[in-house]
Computed example of a mutant assay.
Amino acid sequence: MKDIPLYKQIKNHIIDQIQAGVLRAGDRVPSEAELAKLFRVSQITSKNALIELVDEGYIHRVQGKGSFVSQEAPESKTVSNAVIQNVCQNKTGLIGVLFPSLNIKVEFRLLYYLDKYIYDRGYKMLMHNCRESSEEESSAIQSFMDSNVEGLIIFPTLDEHYNESILRLSIEKFPLVLIDRYLKKINTNIVTTDNVQASYDAVNYLIQQGHKKIAYISPEITNSTTEDRAIGFEKAFLENKFSIDKNLWCIIDLKTIDADKDYEHIYAFFRNNPDISAVFTVNNRMLNLTVKSLNALNRRIPDDIEVFTFDEPDSNNINYILQDYKTICSKAVDLLIAQINSTEFTTSHIVVPPKLIFRDNCE
């Protein structure tokens, strides 16, 4: 794959989407700017991909409106309306569950309770690990459709800008629930933690404790979860009339994380900011690397630096936000089954409040 020019990789991706039925005749193709952002390339690269697609007859341009799949493009053969209708008419008792990875506690907890509630309601679960790949996610959706699942519960991938396969399911009103992360452009059922309020409450607590130099440690903001947690952090500062110092934000891009270079980045951040007195981390990976960095710099937790994080830490001297996994999964399964059994298409966004756990109360 690395030997194929970037513009051809983009071109091949769109051809795959057309031949898979995710993009059908008349559908709009992402613009040069959208493709450049999605694949992290220049607009010249994405433009070359679209030019070749036009030359080969896969798409056509409409002045002032964009690019669209040509009527002459290869026949759609997957995730089409016919396939979805066929699945809906064949009751199998199967529910497909897609997870972005199985690397952190949150995912294992959610998977455990989804399996429990799906079984309790008389269904069987098929699960696929997408390994943080949107392409793998699309492939898994098609595999589940081939298995005649009656509905899907999807925990979207980390770098989830725009997945046409999920959009297609929503457009065709196939029973679907997104959990934890959601796609703002897609109208479907969603169950999430109240990430904005939880982050606000945690950071507001740190401010009330007298901290002013509070670090924010997060992966690159590419999805609803990281975005909402950043919003909550900023809201706490604004409502306390504190200025937000973005120099104290340590944001790790996904390429650095994929290359396992994030520890060096976080270590350098804390070494260069010795006056930080508190830290908020958005997940366990960021927390573990923060703790490792602080230990290497002889910063003691919680004696001279206080930490608040999302999800249960391994240490009992760290405050954390406990997500209500049981409620999230129960609501998601009930929403999906209601959709499976309903003749009307309705959507809900259920926001589940978490609980703040303080180190003094940790067992």
Rank of each mutant, 00 (worst) to 15 (best):
202 A>Y: 06
204 N>W: 09
204 N>R: 12
206 L>C: 00
210 G>H: 05
210 G>K: 02
213 K>F: 11
213 K>W: 10
214 I>G: 01
214 I>N: 00
215 A>Y: 00
216 Y>G: 03
217 I>F: 07
219 P>N: 13
219 P>T: 08
220 E>G: 04
220 E>N: 07
220 E>S: 08
222 T>S: 15
223 N>F: 02
224 S>P: 01
225 T>Y: 10
225 T>H: 11
228 D>C: 09
228 D>Y: 11
229 R>H: 03
231 I>E: 11
232 G>F: 04
232 G>H: 03
233 F>R: 02
233 F>L: 08
233 F>K: 05
235 K>F: 08
235 K>M: 10
236 A>I: 02
236 A>V: 01
239 E>M: 12
239 E>Y: 11
240 N>V: 06
242 F>R: 11
246 K>E: 09
246 K>W: 07
247 N>T: 12
248 L>Q: 01
252 I>R: 10
252 I>S: 12
252 I>M: 15
255 K>I: 08
255 K>E: 14
256 T>A: 02
258 D>G: 07
260 D>F: 13
261 K>N: 08
261 K>D: 09
262 D>V: 00
262 D>M: 11
263 Y>K: 08
263 Y>W: 03
265 H>M: 14
267 Y>G: 06
269 F>V: 02
271 R>Y: 13
272 N>W: 05
272 N>T: 05
272 N>G: 06
272 N>D: 10
273 N>S: 03
275 D>H: 14
277 S>L: 09
278 A>W: 05
279 V>K: 06
280 F>G: 00
280 F>V: 02
281 T>R: 06
285 R>N: 15
286 M>A: 11
289 L>M: 12
290 T>N: 08
293 S>M: 00
294 L>F: 04
295 N>W: 12
296 A>N: 11
298 N>P: 09
298 N>Q: 13
300 R>L: 10
301 I>P: 06
302 P>H: 00
304 D>W: 10
304 D>R: 10
305 I>W: 14
305 I>C: 14
306 E>T: 07
306 E>W: 13
307 V>I: 15
309 T>K: 04
309 T>R: 08
310 F>W: 11
315 S>C: 06
317 N>D: 15
318 I>A: 04
320 Y>M: 00
321 I>C: 11
